[in-house]
Design a protein around this nucleic acid. Sequence first.
DNA 1: TATAAAATCTATAGAATTACTAGACTTTTA
DNA 2: TAAAAGTCTAGTAATTCTATAGATTTTATA
Lengths: 143, 143
Amino acid sequence: MLSKKTKYAIHALTYLAKSSRQTPVIIREIAQEYCIPQKFLESILLELKKAGFLGSKIGKGGGYYLTKDPKKIKMAHILRMFNGPIALLPCVSLNYYESCAECVDEKQCGLHKMALEVRDAALKILLNKSLGDIVAFEELESC
Amino acid sequence: MLSKKTKYAIHALTYLAKSSRQTPVIIREIAQEYCIPQKFLESILLELKKAGFLGSKIGKGGGYYLTKDPKKIKMAHILRMFNGPIALLPCVSLNYYESCAECVDEKQCGLHKMALEVRDAALKILLNKSLGDIVAFEELESC
DNA sequence: TATAAAATCTATAGAATTACTAGACTTTTA
DNA sequence: TAAAAGTCTAGTAATTCTATAGATTTTATA
């Protein structure tokens, strides 16, 4: 299951992507919109900034804004950042690989094979789903 | 990611499915095979028994044994028992459904839609994968 | 140039979940 | 009747997740 942190991050990104304003959006506004503890959200937005998804402007009139085209922000990337591996097992994780201590040969492990299939199926969707897709769907449906 | 408990449960089931013995298998033997804390494994096997996957024989010469055909034990079932929901969000979980507090209409939620796609893809695999498949794969490969 | 508004930084506390342990009890077999 | 096995109740330890506190820095503007 996605952690609260992950959901908060996605909500914030969605909000920023939908904001058609030219001025940056302040943390408090996003926090209030989704009932996110403000201090918690601060650290999330900072992480997103350091990862290159957001830019910020300090001081009065400041706030956060997207620096990337929402279509270029893959959901797989966001999930990995905040939720850790997409895979069910470390031994099939592309980004967080670890071998299993008890496993002699991964190629012979039935559980490994199963986890591989699940990972491939999930990844196929998550790599092709962007923040832009999420937003576009919501704006389409609300008509 | 699968919890240790889940992996322990799967290992134990796999071991029992592979055991061609006519006598029950004792906890200690399984625990040693996979370096699982014995007391922890005891509670896991008890859960599996209460869920109808295992039978047990008490007293000297006792132990645990499978009561179902491995082909009839769906991995989706085991994962849900020990690892909780397969879905990424409670609002798309078939067995652990909960609505999101912040969500006005699930049908309009882009994240909901994404989670639904991932769940369907994962479930398609996990419902069609049985303990028997896991074991068969391992016995095939080891030739 | 003082003030207010905003992000940034460091540190820590609290809550929840996961993993594991201890020990007494019951049942069965030889 | 003794040893070997599962069963039951309770609790502890470790880890991860969530949240908070407070000081600092930067910037706009009155």
